[in-house]
């Protein structure tokens, strides 16, 4: 009987989250989430299919140098006569790869540590919280600079750097979530039934904590892209010949008087992608945070 109740509570929590999310599709929050997802998917699409989507070879000289935007070259060409639109399309690959890779690494490290730290508590938990909070409070870009300066450039290395910066975020949120879920009734009930700790952790705590992962991801993804772009701009991210939005901006910053389009379009892409990710997190936050929902009657 008690097991049935516990299982029901757990299922209904997940079920409610899903229903609320679908039910919100017409509200502002729902529009933000779905619109953000659509934009991100669009970028994923052009990145994956770049060889077919891009009108020109990004590294080939296809025109005379530095042409302003025109009907053949929508975003113009750069000083080497390369088509900027094509470079921007190929350039979507770097930030998206870095975000996916770094989120996977940060999650793989931050989540289990946070889960165990929050579940078992004690001195190790307090120490981990202190270390993670120290890292968290530190300017993200500066931390990234320190690590990147040592491990050198490259897509995988940059992903490691970003993962290092954002792992504490995953740790914090998941640890605090576990610590609060632990106090809740259905976990107490499960423990009262003398279920093993592993069972309690995997059957009752994990599903509840899993809800917060998309939220952390959407919150930190936009920041991760901005950090990656910042590293590229400072010359710490990537080898120079790869098409990447941040790198393009940095390369033509000095030529802004002669060819604004070389800087403008790659940067614009960063804004669109990061804003779309921010919409997802903002919408999720509105939907999942009942504290901020409007009180209609009092």
């Amino acid at each position: 009987m008690a097991t049935v109740t516990v299982g029901f509570l757990r299922r209904s929590m997940m079920g409610r989250a899903v229903r609320v999310f679908l039910g919100e599709s017409k509200s502002l929050a729902g529009v933000l989430v779905w619109g953000g997802i659509a934009i991100v998917l669009f970028f994923v699409f052009i990145a994956v299919f770049a060889p077919w989507v891009a009108p020109f070879d990004p590294n080939a000289t296809v025109e005379t140098t530095a042409l302003p935007p025109s009907s053949t070259h929508w975003f113009g060409t750069n000083r080497l006569g390369q088509d900027i639109l094509s470079r921007v399309i190929w350039g979507a690959r770097i930030p998206l790869t870095v975000v996916a890779l770094s989120a996977a690494i940060a999650l793989a490290v931050g989540a289990p540590v946070g889960l165990l730290s929050g579940f078992y508590g004690g001195a190790l938990d307090r120490f981990l919280v202190l270390v993670m909070d120290s890292i968290y409070a530190f300017p993200g870009l500066l931390l990234a600079i320190v690590v990147a300066a040592v491990i050198g450039p490259g897509v995988v290395n940059v992903s490691l750097v970003i993962a290092f910066v954002y792992a504490p975020t995953y740790f914090r949120v998941i640890r605090n979530h576990v610590a609060s879920v632990k106090e809740q009734l259905f976990v107490e009930a499960a423990e009262a039934l003398a279920l093993s700790r592993t069972t309690v952790l995997s059957r009752y705590i994990l599903p509840s904590v899993a809800q917060s992962i998309p939220v952390i991801f959407s919150v930190s993804a936009a920041d991760a892209i901005l950090t990656q772009a910042g590293l590229s701009f400072l010359g710490l991210g990537l080898p120079v010949d790869i098409p990447d939005w941040g790198l393009e901006v940095s390369r033509y910053a000095g030529l802004i008087r002669e060819m604004w389009w070389g800087v403008f379009f790659p940067g614009l892409m960063i804004i669109i992608l990061t804003t779309a990710l921010a919409f997802i997190s903002e919408g999720l936050n509105d939907i999942l945070n009942p504290l901020l929902r409007r009180r209609e009657t009092r």
Binding site: G230, V249, R257, V263, P266, G267, I270, I271, T275, A278
Partner: peptide
């Protein structure tokens, strides 16, 4: 607010200069 916060600072600075 969302667009401002998600703008790459270095790009924003260059555009301001321009």
């Amino acid at each position: 607010a969302a667009v401002l916060y998600n703008t790459p600072i270095f790009w924003f600075g260059i555009i301001m200069q321009l």
